[in-house]
Design a protein around this nucleic acid. Structure first.
Lengths: 236, 236
DNA sequence: ATCCAGACTATTTTACAAATTTCGTCTGAA
DNA sequence: TTCAGACGAAATTTGTAAAATAGTCTGGAT
């Protein structure tokens, strides 16, 4: 019946609950736990070889992050995806990161700008796909991509704003995973990212923000244009 | 169509965990659970007459909201307060609510604007203090005040942004509680709020945002000027 | 200062009880 | 026959409790 096998090994986290939270998050983001899927304790206890307490704890944390939906007396499910939610997330992320980027550019130190250049250098040297034929997601590229975008906003001076941006990135990542194959190689992400870095180095905040927001919108558009992503919704 | 209204509202928590989360949040916001205080399960089980599982669950949720600090293997504590954190929260809330207010004013329907006028009407008719002498916090005023500010941003079109604003409001409420006595009657909150409503009705977004941000800053300044609020920090 | 044992606390496991939802079946009226 | 509602069994979620495990902290000895 269930041949589901969690992928991420137990590692650094100090408690089962924290470790489980991380492992579950990865499996949610990568789509191994599917939108709408029921998350029964019994099933999770077997899949992750753990007791009910730490699992419950992890699910409660993930519910606050929005990756898991919690209904009293009805347990946990993987949060559904929808066209509306994708639009709203994209909008919200744009608003948050616009502010964070502007603040970073305005108040960020020289260190911050150098960090952007460095993060871009590393990302630019890494292949997005492991195979030349289609898109074979390269985990290292994904990691560096995330770090690059994070560096753009890290100088904003508000840990909360960064936390919220991280959260939006996570929520959007699920959508990205669903249509990543379609986007490749239609877009030239390299150039989009490079243009952002140029604008940052030039100190042109309006241009940098414009490019960043367009970057987010383009990502959303690719997904929205893919009819296979939202099987449940006919009127996308 | 259906005029039946259940006596007990749906949103009343139906599990211990949810109920506890609400009760704990209130006690945290009102300062009955003090910043830095250790939250031992044993103590909480006795205080709230509940088992450890629902308490643990509630604490995990509150940790995500930032009201409770969780350190692996070291249990839960009430999140500390600090001058830096107050500054950062005020800054972050200003950024978030600026965006939310602008969006509400730009895209919000006529309903939204009427909602603002109505919320202000209700707030303006309510006394802030229950006694004339000092400040004797009026729960009804607090409720309406919160609803008023929430109405200003509710039309922004992003549930996530509203959630984040709510969270910042909660985190800041603790600081407000600590020095509310000092602020009364120095400030004229009535006029500050009224001016915001006027700007909103005039459709002057820049003025409305300016007044709103100044309102937040003024609240923070009152607290920062109060030496009794941060007993632990000598260099405020 | 570092190390260590013992006390203490937090975390996890396990088992079970209680409450609630889910789901299939049945009934009786249209 | 059809079907809305009633009913009840089964499954699931939630809560309780107690004991085992694992980590942290303290204070004294090296």
């Amino acid at each position: 019946m269930n041949e589901f096998q969690p992928v991420v090994p137990m590692d650094l986290a100090v408690t089962q609950a924290s470790s489980l939270c991380d492992r579950l998050r990865v499996d949610l983001l990568e789509g191994r736990l599917k939108p709408g899927q029921k998350l029964q304790l019994k099933f999770l206890m077997a899949a992750y070889q753990s007791g009910q307490t730490p699992i419950r704890e992890a699910l409660n944390r993930l519910a606050s992050e929005g990756l898991v939906a919690l209904r009293d007396q009805r347990g946990f499910t993987v949060t559904e995806i929808s066209v509306d939610e994708l639009r709203e997330l994209t909008k919200t992320r744009s608003w948050l990161e616009e502010r964070a980027l502007r603040e970073s550019m305005q108040t960020g130190s020289a260190d911050w700008e150098e960090g952007v250049v460095l993060a871009w250098h590393r990302l630019s040297k890494t292949r997005r796909s492991l195979s030349d034929a289609g898109l074979d997601s390269n985990p290292e590229w994904e990691r560096l991509h995330r770090l690059f975008h994070r560096q753009l906003i890290i100088g904003c001076g508000s840990r909360w704003l960064i936390t919220y941006c991280d959260q939006q990135v996570d929520l959007l990542y699920r959508y990205r995973q669903l249509s990543a194959r379609k986007a490749f190689p239609t877009r030239n992400l390299f150039e989009e990212h490079e243009a952002i870095v140029r604008a940052v180095v030039d100190g042109d905040a309006d241009r940098a923000v414009g490019l960043l927001v367009a970057h987010f919108q383009a990502s959303a558009d690719v997904i929205l244009a893919d009819p296979s992503v939202f099987p449940g919704e006919r009127f996308a």
